[in-house]
Every structure is written in structure tokens, then in C-alpha cells.
């Protein structure tokens, strides 16, 4: 019996002592230098587009490390780190503190907007008597031939019932326009759900990978992104998707899915991209950093990070705009007719 007790005692001792062998990674000190190193390392090991965008992250370290040494104020440090992240030229990269949020917006500010809310509010389109089903604003336009839906954000959810009512309302229309211009994204689930009404069968519409190691090109094997076909609601007539540079992130994903739909046609400007699913992490000072982590691809395994080209590139004409006409909607109407 003494032997048994000895063994039990030894085992307990082993259990107490062993955890010290499983080391937790060291956290940088909460100093400007420590937070800089932490942020640089998060991007170095977790950001997914360093190689794809040919960014020399080591040289960026050299540039900014010397600047960090001269920083005295927290706001200056925040702006410096925001500038460092802006080198990634990615709308999915942000730094959040209690007093500010850094952002990179040149992916749409450097381009024509190709959208005017005043124009779609014109009586030729939505007017003032449009209907509202969940997040969708909709109306019948072009002398009753075309159904028009404006969807402002994929952050706003909807139900099958919302869509069923709209489709029923558009029963006598030849085609449908879904306007996702200035829709900055939101939930990929809503993107999938909305696209599912336009597919007859489940279809592989893209791929996704994720970082598997610290190397800039350490990625998992691609996983298929499938768009299902909704069993109850189906629209199998022409559907035009209107895009501009502010069609970003989950909207980019929706456009990518609709490119593979049997009746989907993309009209307008190139989308803003945002093909990397963002994740987040924290710095020792409690700031949150958001970054692209899982790159997404189209059905041909091409990256969607820089945007998706429309089938019919159309820009908003200044002359049309002055006359209350939305050139992109008019092109979509013409394609349906």
C-alpha cells in the first residue's frame, strides 16, 4: 500500500510541476516601443496580403522604429501607427483606441463616386413612395418593366419573408436591379443568403484560405465557398447588380457570388475589393487592430482583394446627373429591356 501512495504522490507532484514546461508567448511591455513591436509582429505574422501586395514589411519596420523613438504623446504615437498600417493600402485594416480609429479610405476616395443618393431618390427611380422590406428600399421603375432594390448595408439583416414579398411585387417585371453601390459590407451570411435566390443549384462561387504559420505565404489549402440555391424563393429572370468603388467587403463577396449566377450581370464601376476576411487582435495598451486574415478568391481562384470588374463598366455622366438621370441605372434598364 505504501508503494501505491508513493506513486500517487509522485503523480500529483508531476502534475503540479509539468505546467511550467508549456510556455505562454511573451507579451511586449506597455510602452510606445513595446506596442509598436507588438503591432508590427501581428501584421508580420497574421496579415495575409504582404507577399501578394509586394510589401517589404521589414523595411517599414526600419522606417517607423526610428520614428517611435522620438514620440512623446499618445495621439502622436496613434497617428504614427495609423500611418504605418496605411502602408498596407487595405480598407480592412484599422487601429482602434478609446479616442480614435485609424482608417485607409483611398480605395474609394481616389476614384469617382458613381453614386448619388439624391439621384436614386428621384421620382424616376425610388421617388418618395418607395416600399421598405427590412433593409431593402424598392420600387417598380421603367414603366413597370423593372424592379429596383436599393440595399445600403450587409450589416442589416433580412428575412425570406422580406424577399418573398418583394419578388411577388415584381412578378410582372422583366428583370430586377439590385443596387449595392455605397454598400460597405457587413455579414457574409447575408451576402450568401441574398445570392441564394438567384441560383438554381448549389454552385462553387469562390475559395478561402487562412494563415497557417508566421511566414508571409504560409496558407492553408483553399476551401470552397458555395452559394446554395434557396428552395422556396427563386428569381430566374435577368438581375443587374449595380456597383461602385464603395461596394466593399461582404458586398464584394456578394458581387463575386452573383458573377457566377445564371442571370446575374454586373453593371457600374469596379468594386472596392476587401477580399480578405478580417480578424482582430490587441496591443499591450488595449488598442484593437483589425487586419485581413483569410484571403478570398473567385471561382477561378483569382484574388478579389483589389475589386471585381463589372461586366458592363459604366460611369455616372455629369450631364445625366444634372438632368436627374442615373447613367448606371439607365444602362441596367436598357440591358433588361
Amino acid at each position: 500500500m505504501k508503494k501505491v501512495i508513493k506513486h500517487i504522490y509522485f503523480l500529483m507532484l508531476l502534475v503540479v510541476l509539468l505546467p511550467s514546461c508549456m510556455n505562454e508567448p511573451a507579451v511586449q511591455p506597455n510602452t510606445f516601443k513595446g506596442n509598436f513591436v507588438s503591432l508590427w509582429q501581428i501584421i508580420d505574422t497574421k496579415y495575409c496580403y504582404l507577399d501578394y501586395k509586394h510589401i517589404n514589411w521589414d523595411s517599414i519596420h526600419s522606417v517607423y522604429a526610428s520614428k517611435v523613438d522620438t514620440v512623446k504623446k499618445e495621439l502622436t504615437f496613434f497617428n504614427l501607427m495609423g500611418n504605418m498600417l496605411a502602408e498596407l493600402k487595405d480598407g480592412h485594416v484599422n487601429l482602434y483606441s478609446d479616442f480614435n480609429a485609424s482608417r485607409y479610405w483611398k480605395w474609394f476616395t481616389d476614384y469617382p463616386s458613381n453614386f448619388s443618393s439624391a439621384l436614386i431618390g428621384n421620382s424616376r427611380y425610388l421617388g418618395s413612395n418607395y416600399l421598405i422590406a427590412g433593409p431593402f428600399h424598392y420600387a417598380i421603375i421603367a414603366s413597370g418593366k423593372v424592379g429596383y432594390i436599393y440595399y445600403q448595408s450587409f450589416e442589416d439583416g433580412f428575412s425570406n419573408s422580406n424577399v418573398a414579398y418583394m419578388m411577388n411585387y415584381f412578378t410582372n417585371c422583366k428583370g430586377l436591379i439590385i443596387d449595392v453601390r455605397n454598400n460597405g459590407g457587413g455579414s457574409l451570411d447575408y451576402s450568401k443568403q441574398l445570392a441564394s435566390y438567384f441560383f438554381k443549384v448549389e454552385t462553387v462561387t469562390g475559395y478561402m484560405r487562412h494563415k497557417t504559420g508566421n511566414g508571409h505565404s504560409d496558407f492553408s489549402s483553399p476551401v470552397e465557398i458555395k452559394t446554395p440555391a434557396d428552395k422556396n424563393i427563386q428569381w430566374q429572370r435577368p438581375v443587374m447588380i449595380l456597383t461602385n468603388r464603395m461596394s466593399f467587403s461582404a458586398t464584394n463577396d456578394f458581387v463575386n457570388r452573383m458573377k457566377e449566377s445564371p442571370n446575374g450581370i454586373i453593371v457600374g464601376d469596379k468594386t472596392g475589393g476587401g477580399g480578405g476576411l478580417p480578424l482582430s487582435s490587441e496591443l499591450p495598451n488595449g488598442w484593437l487592430v483589425r487586419f485581413s486574415s483569410s484571403p478570398m478568391y473567385d471561382a477561378q481562384m483569382q484574388s478579389t482583394e483589389f475589386g471585381i470588374d463589372p461586366d458592363y463598366p459604366v460611369a455616372l455622366s455629369a450631364t445625366d446627373q444634372a438632368n436627374g438621370i442615373d447613367t448606371i441605372i439607365e444602362k441596367a434598364v436598357a440591358l433588361i429591356k
Binding site: 508531476l14 478561402m208 487562412h210 492553408s220 476551401v223 458555395k226 476576411l277 480578424l279 486574415s293 483569410s294
Partner: peptide
């Protein structure tokens, strides 16, 4: 996995390396 989102795991069904045998080693 550190880089795998729940969207990829539960929506796309990629559960590769998500379940692990555990022992005193880990």
C-alpha cells in the same frame, strides 16, 4: 487554428486541425 475564422470552420465546414487528442503532453 489561430488564423481560421468561425465562418470558415462552421459556415464552410473546414474543421481541419480543430480537434486534438490531449494528454499530459499538451
Amino acid at each position: 487554428k489561430a488564423g481560421a475564422s468561425y465562418f470558415e470552420m462552421f459556415d464552410l465546414g473546414n474543421m481541419t486541425d480543430a480537434f486534438h487528442f490531449s494528454s499530459l503532453y499538451n
